[in-house]
Design a binder for these strands. Structure first.
Lengths: 163, 163
DNA sequence: CCTCAAAGGTTGATAGTGTCAATTGTTTAT
DNA sequence: ATAAACAATTGACACTATCAACCTTTGAGG
């Protein structure tokens, strides 16, 4: 019953009736219609992320860590922030990756408290294959008409910029 | 080192260089550009799903289960399929939800092997609030120009239909 | 200089999530 | 009637996650 923080917030429940499932789209406004559809497609797709990670004998979280560890070194605490998890969790996570020779702890020169994480040769190689696999577009994208792909890309570019 | 199945597949690595991070978009084709952008936005958003679930004192998986349990009763094995996980996992999952009074096991009349899952009153109420919260569109959608929201909705509708 | 508060990381306790192998009970096909 | 197949559970074990307590190092003020 515990183990999950109670950040909480008194949530105003949408008065005009609550969507009761994934597929229905009511009269709740444009943004919500777009979001609900996007959400349901994405959700379907995300379901096989664990299987994708398993192709490389990684857990989903380990895959996520490798992904974050691309550009240079990262402090453990920084990684904890990226993962939105407790620092103590990262210790074990990195222990296991280090035991597999994918990652190295390296004490910082500037501040001897912090340990910087860097990919090993093997880690970088595995990460490359993992990224290539992750970025393969799923069928629901590849099977879109080309003009939809263009529109989607442009919309997402704009969204990323203003975000 | 174990605990993750080795489904595996000899994966053709994209020859034209491997994307090394989330944000870069190379010359890898329209579908991949669109997908990479979508993925990076979605990924950012999905990071706070655990916090969202925690608002209701649910783990991410429990939230997922409640979401699936909307329309009528579901056999445990069916739920295992939806979650893409082992049936034995569902036992404990449902145990905890049942202990909290959100869900009920009900033996099927037709086949006494199967147990049907139904939401209790409290479960349905909680699910309603959870769904309303989940379908609140995130900023990157609400802050789009209206014509982008329309286009996005229409693209996603078409994608859902052909999927 | 010295102390003390704050920060980075680790450890131990405890719980949830997930797999696999083995088991029990029920159904279905031969 | 027997055997094969299926639904759910149990037990063993590993990974993910949190919290509290701890140690070392750092940085600020007295």
């Amino acid at each position: 019953m515990s183990g999950y923080s109670d950040s909480h917030s008194e949530q105003a429940v949408r008065p005009s009736g609550v969507p009761s499932g994934v597929t229905e789209v009511g009269e709740e406004g444009l943004a919500q219609q777009a979001w609900t559809l996007l959400f349901s497609l994405l959700h379907t797709h995300m379901r096989n992320f664990p299987a994708l990670a398993a192709e490389f004998e990684l857990s989903p979280v380990q895959a996520h860590v490798l992904r974050q560890l691309g550009e240079g070194a990262l402090a453990m605490s920084t990684l904890a922030n990226y993962l939105s998890c407790d620092a103590s969790n990262v210790t074990g996570l990195v222990d296991r990756l280090e035991a597999r020779g994918l990652v190295e702890r390296r004490s910082s020169e500037q501040d001897r408290r912090v340990k910087m994480l860097v990919l090993t040769e093997a880690g970088a190689e595995l990460r490359g294959r993992l990224m290539a696999r992750m970025f393969e577009p799923p069928p629901f994208v590849t099977e879109m008409p080309e003009e939809d792909q263009v529109a989607l890309r442009d919309i997402m570019r704009r969204a990323l910029k203003t975000q």
